[in-house]
């Protein structure tokens, strides 16, 4: 575990906490894409199939349980909570799941580390995570007033991905035989998707203005 990896995981954890804070305390999910949250729940459910079979560390297992639990509870809150669900605007969140899920599944069947159920599901989760933010980014473009917590949530998610790239660079130079093309290419694509958002996020921060993405 290096500092970039730890910082990346902590940033990821912070993003989840920011979203839970918004949902629990403010009882609102305005500006949050349920589509993206459902895709993340699917990402974790398919990636962590090894949770009971391969023990890596207590840290690893604990984080997996946190990400699984939080992603499914966020979906539950947006769909079923009496007050929270009222702030969800379905008409704006129109991205189709299968438009992302099917290509990722096909790619996972073709490009994987080993052709077994667990490995294909793992590759699928990596590909799906790379694009899962798209419904959220589309929703942000449609939202006129992006509140601070939503902006911070997406910023933290992007920062987590950027830190993972630094982690891979560090590991490549410090560990022998550390080569992971599937995670590297997908991770790079995933981080690039945030480039546009980052640009406007820093602009709004620099000029002390409300965040707004051009349509």
């Amino acid at each position: 575990m290096n500092i970039f990896r730890l910082a990346g995981d902590m940033t990821h954890l912070a993003s989840v906490l920011v979203l839970l804070l918004k949902i629990h305390t403010i009882k609102s999910c305005a500006g949050i894409s349920l589509k993206t949250q459902e895709l993340y729940a699917l990402v974790f459910a398919t990636r962590y199939l090894d949770i009971f079979t391969d023990f890596i560390s207590l840290y690893n297992t604990t984080m997996k349980l946190i990400f699984l639990g939080s992603s499914f509870s966020i979906v539950w809150y947006i769909r079923n909570h009496k007050i929270v669900s009222r702030s969800y605007d379905k008409s704006q969140d129109t991205f189709r799941h299968y438009f992302l899920i099917i290509p990722c599944l096909l790619l996972a069947l073709l490009v994987n580390e080993k052709f077994t159920f667990k490995e294909v599901m793992w590759a699928f989760s990596i590909y799906l995570e790379a694009v899962a933010i798209l419904p959220q980014l589309v929703l942000l473009q449609r939202t006129r007033n992006i509140d601070n917590l939503t902006g911070q949530y997406v910023f933290l998610l992007g920062a987590y991905r950027a830190l993972y790239i630094l982690n891979w660079i560090y590991r490549y130079f410090t560990e022998t035989h550390y080569v992971h093309w599937i995670t590297w290419v997908s991770g790079l694509v995933q981080t690039l998707l945030y480039a546009d958002f980052f640009y406007y996020y820093f602009e709004s921060w620099k000029n002390n203005k409300k965040l707004q993405l051009p349509a």
């Binding site: 990896r5 391969d54 890596i56 690893n60 984080m63 580390e113 490995e119 093309w181």
Partner: peptide, 10 residues
């Protein structure tokens, strides 16, 4: 790919 590796990242 030829072999699968242990997944120590999240």
């Amino acid at each position: 790919g030829t072999k699968s590796s242990p997944k120590d990242e999240l």
